[in-house]
Simulated scan of single mutants.
Amino acid sequence: MHVFVTGGSGQTGPAVVAELIAAGHTVTGLARSDTAAARLRSLGATPHRGSLDDLDSLRRGAEAADGVVHMAYGGDYADPDGLIRRDRAAIEALGQALVGSGKPLVGTSGTLVMRAGRVST
């Protein structure tokens, strides 16, 4: 299965990308920078240049894949309403690209209050 992943170079994304590839899937990951693209390549994924603000790029990535895992989240944390609007627009764009296709869209969420590197339940 070819999976388009947003957030694949972020905090939890690399673990998901690595698991998908280890399970035999092909992964294309959204990369908004050269650093993100390099990280995705190092994991065995193909970078897809764009950002959460580039809705056309998100649609193209989703349309080219057999399924989507949306993990990206970010922006100005001083503007929580803006973060929510941005994420909603991204999810809507991904969903529009998949409507009627039968392709899955998986959305994840996390918490910013957990210490990095610590397993929590």
Rank of each mutant, 00 (worst) to 15 (best):
M71G: 10
G102A: 05
G100N: 11
A78T: 08
A90D: 06
D79V: 06
L83Q: 03
A78L: 04
D76V: 12
L94C: 07
R88Y: 13
Y77G: 00
G102K: 00
G75F: 08
R86P: 02
G95W: 00
D87V: 00
G100Y: 04
G75I: 07
A97D: 13
R86A: 13
M71Q: 15
A78S: 13
Q96A: 15
Y77P: 11
D76Y: 13
D81E: 14
Y73M: 12
S101W: 02
Y73G: 04
I91R: 07
L83V: 13
Q96C: 02
R86N: 09
A89K: 07
A78F: 05
A78V: 01
L94D: 01
M71R: 02
G100K: 13
A78Y: 02
A72H: 12
H70P: 13
L98C: 14
S101F: 00
Y73A: 13
G82H: 09
A90H: 06
A78D: 10
P104D: 08
L83G: 01
V99P: 00
E92G: 00
I91Y: 02
Q96I: 02
I91V: 15
M71S: 12
R86H: 05
R85F: 07
D87T: 14
Y77R: 08
V99D: 14
D87L: 04
I91N: 09
E92V: 14
D81W: 07
D79A: 08
G74W: 13
A89V: 11
D76C: 09
D81K: 03
G74V: 09
G100W: 07
S101D: 12
V99W: 05
I84A: 15
G74H: 14
A97K: 05
P80Y: 01
Q96G: 13
A93S: 11
I84R: 05
G95L: 01
L98Q: 01
G82P: 14
L94A: 10
H70Q: 14
A93K: 02
G95Q: 06
G75M: 03
A90T: 03
G102Y: 05
Q96H: 10
A90V: 08
G74D: 13
R88W: 11
G95E: 01
D76Q: 06
A72V: 03
A72E: 08
H70Y: 13
K103W: 01
D79T: 03
A97S: 11
E92H: 08
L94I: 11
D76E: 12
P104E: 10
